[in-house]
Structure formats: C-alpha cells, structure tokens
Design a protein around this nucleic acid. Sequence first.
DNA 1: AACATACTCAACCGCCAGGAG
DNA 2: ACTCCTGGCGGTTGAGTATGT
Length: 296
Amino acid sequence: MGRTPCCEKIGLNRGKWSAEEDDKLVKYIKANGEGSWRSLPKNAGLSLSLLGYYWICLLRCGKSCRLRWINYLRADVKRGKFTQQEEETIVKLHKSLGNRWSVIASHLPGRTDNEIKNYWNSHLSRTIYRYRFISEATLSPEDIIKIAKNKGRNSKNASEQPPSSNATTVSSSGTNALMVSPINDATQGMELLEPFIEIDDDILMQLNHFLQDEDDEAARCQNDGDRLTNTGNRTTSEERDGGWGSDIDMYGCLSPIVSFFGDDHVMQWDHSGAGGDINLWDSSDLGIQSETRHVW
DNA sequence: AACATACTCAACCGCCAGGAG
DNA sequence: ACTCCTGGCGGTTGAGTATGT
C-alpha cells in the first residue's frame, strides 16, 4: 500500500488565502498552538462553506495552513525589503551553504526560507551566474548586490547607479587569464536582460583553456614586438587578431553562453558541444563578423 | 492606449527523514 | 523490522503587476 497523501486532492481549497481564512487560522493557532497540521483545517473551521442550500467541504490542506502560518501570519515574520546587511548575509551564506534555505533563514531573524529563496531566485542568482567568472575570484557580496540592483528591465535607465568599480579588476595572470576592467565600464548602457544558462564545469574548463590560449598568444605577440595599445591597465585588442584578442573584458552570460566586451564591441560565443569549436561573433556589429575557434 | 514582455512572490508539489505504533 | 504519518525542505508554477514598445 502506498503512502496516503497528506490531504485529499479532491475538495481542496487552493489559491490565495482570504482575510477570513487568515483570521480563522491565526485565532486557532493562538488558542491551540502550532502542530497537528493535518487535522487543523477541520478544527479551525477552514473547511466548510455555504453554497446555496448546501454546505460544501473545501478543505485547506494542512501543509498549506502550515506554510501560510510560517511564512506570513506568524508575529515574528519580518516583511518588506531586504536590507543591505541581509543581502550580504544571503550571498555569503549561499556561497558556503548552497540552496539550504532553511539554514540560511536561521541566520536572518524574521525572514523565512521561502522569502529568501524567492529573493535569491529573482534578484541575486542571475547575477551570480552572469558574473560567475568574475565573482568567483573578485566580486565581493556588496558588488554582486549592486550589480543585481543595477540589472533588470530598468537596466537601460540611465539614472541607475552602476556598481562600484573597486575590487573588480583582475590581472591577466591566474587560472582564468582574464583582464577585467571595472564593472561600471561594462554595465553602463548595457542590456543585461538576456536569458542565462548555468555554465557547467565542462564549459568552464573549455573556456578557461580558450582564454589561456588567447593570453599565451598575446604574450607571444608582445615578445615578438607587436605594437599593442595600452589603455590604463589593459590592452586593446583591436590592433591584433583583427579584433579578437585575449585582453578582453568578460561580463557574463548573454545568450547563448557568455559574452566578452572589448573596448567597443560585444563578442559572444556559442558552444557546439563537448570539445570542438566555439563560434565567436561580434554582436555590436550588425554586419555579422564571426570566427570559429577550436578549443579542445 | 493597447499589447507584449519581464518580474515578483505566494502558493503548491513531491520527496525525504524521523518518530510512533 | 516494518509501515504509516507528519513535518520540513527545496524546486517549481502561475497569477498579478510593472515596465517597455
């Protein structure tokens, strides 16, 4: 015999909770305490409705009652916008704990796991993935939050403040061999709305190899006495490779996978599967300029 | 003004662990 | 030892809303 469901699927009252239902639930729990969720709907009177001449049975599921109480009706539930400190705590804890929302919530008094999960999914996660390459090495929680606030459908709005530029410049040394200019260079006037996908480790590795190759090539060019134009602490790519260079600025996951922002153009790359080629194209140039690179 | 698109978040779903019998 | 029940958790959905075109 299989498990009986927590509640009957037929005759359930679903959807938004009415003020009347909230009132009944609060009064019942204040009188009888939490627990016994299965029997609570009936005991609390969250079950009977008069329809014409008939009493009909529309039970709230016990789990639904529990969720409503825990997430919204409890006296100690804090509502409203997350503070800067709370956001930083979420980012830090998520980095170490992952999607263990209840544990994260235990560090944020008054916040529920559901609320934190929603906030993460709608505000912070996309930023993390878009800026994964940068964030893993260089972005502080504060920067991630600032970027998250700067993104969204209003991202074209010039009144929005770009994120801070400190701590976002990395040298071209290191595993990723990236030279990243200050974030605000890239976010100004940029559309950050494209759908994202998570970059898996395989893609990461391939991209890292690709970037390493590019960096090596740049080093060879310098050794060979190629004339490179330096702008501040980075080098433009325009004078070599016909525009495809290693000293590129990478800012995240534009569709389909990731984009690079050079000095005045956007480069995207497409991934054709495990190993093989990636296709680069300059999306800021309507005349499709593309190049295929073998990366494995 | 109307429509399309993107975003938010309350609520639901299925799974799992632990306890009771 | 086994079954069943309950509470708890994380993932997902979809209605409502905001914003862009």
